[in-house]
Design a binder for these strands. Structure first.
Lengths: 200, 200
DNA sequence: AATTATAGTGAACGAAAGTTCACTTGTCAA
DNA sequence: TTGACAAGTGAACTTTCGTTCACTATAATT
């Protein structure tokens, strides 16, 4: 039952740190959220800062496991419409999954204070998506679906606006539906601009 | 001398809050940064939270004064190259001006905790730039510089990637030069894709 | 010159923070 | 059955937090 409690503590820490930050959260409300008394946490973590370190370890491990290797790359879409559909599936997941949302919020809040959070933030918000879509767009160019161009530039031009709207959802969740619609509109705009339609 | 000290306190608060957040900053280090003792601050602000409120008031007033009205809209560029040049001038300012940087960082850190910071964050990071460039792109379409399309969509597609790289500069200042180069490359890519070159 | 208001000081306060520790309880191995 | 260990409790300790207050020094006002 040790591992279990440890993970429940980490989950509660993610929840509270992502809302009020590390400094804005005290161990009393953290443990209270788990029905414990504050001293109990020291059976599982040496200190509040050790808990923070463990949380970052877990976040980094999760990121590496899910986005680190090229194995997890989604397949190259066979049509322009399939690119839109795949995008919307990914977006729908990422703006609705609670722990993914909290992870982004936590990295957003702590990126200027913690070097590891900073590195992970850049991956989450900028380079990760670009590196994921670069080979996809290269593949779509090879198949003649997209006009030939720098795939990394296209990946950047595609993912940065989407990322901006995802972060709007984190900030103002009541605008999520609207943001999703905007993302779909942007995605369709993108394929219209860069896509090759075979009527030539 | 009252007003002066009040503004020095606000400047120090912006400096420290933007690095460690409101909760992560205590009034002792805040006043120490000004060569005062902590109790002195209460001659100028009722409480730490009143100081926070005043800081947000100032930030909102600044934003409204500089970006609020359509008077401050930059002129419509007469060439595609002028769009790039204007963009780079704005970017160069915004990634090097210390108080602008600190304002963005503060809004980034506190957006999930404070409703007013949240609203200002959305303006700074999303809608503000889009609303600034929408009439510019509409004007450039009228002049036949850009292909006719939804100017708001183009403004979004243009400003979101630039905003993403600006925020990279906030997070990792040592990458500023590289990010500026990337912004210029993106801007040139944009005018190449959307611009109308008159050889037809 | 006397008075008043302003800005800053230093000591002190209570509350809340993170942490420690002796102790109880429950679980599993020997 | 006993013993050992892991998990949780509650009281207590030490800092540090935000804040108050009586007081001083300086500058402006009468």
């Amino acid at each position: 039952m040790a591992k279990d409690t440890k993970e429940r503590i980490l989950a509660a820490a993610l929840d509270l740190f992502s809302q009020n930050g590390y400094a804005g959260t005290n161990v009393r409300e953290l443990t209270a959220a788990l029905g414990m008394v504050k001293s109990s946490i020291y059976k599982h973590f040496e200190s509040k800062e050790a808990l923070w370190d463990a949380l970052l370890d877990a976040m980094i491990a999760y990121y590496d496991a899910h986005f680190g290797s090229s194995e997890h790359l989604p397949p190259v879409p066979e049509t322009l419409e399939a690119l839109v559909a795949m995008t919307m599936r990914m977006v729908d997941f990422t703006v609705h999954d609670e722990s993914v949302i909290k992870t982004r919020k936590l990295l957003t809040i702590e990126q200027f204070r913690d070097a590891r959070a900073r590195g992970l933030a850049t991956k989450h918000f900028l380079t990760g998506l670009r590196e994921m879509f670069t080979p996809i767009f290269a593949g779509m160019m090879d198949r003649g679906l997209l006009r030939r161009d720098d795939p990394a530039m296209l990946a950047f031009a595609y993912t940065a606006p989407i990322s901006a709207l995802i972060r709007l959802c984190d900030r103002e969740p009541e605008k999520t539906d609207d943001a999703i619609a905007q993302i779909e509109a942007f995605s369709r705009h993108f394929v219209q601009v860069y896509g090759v339609t075979e009527h030539a």
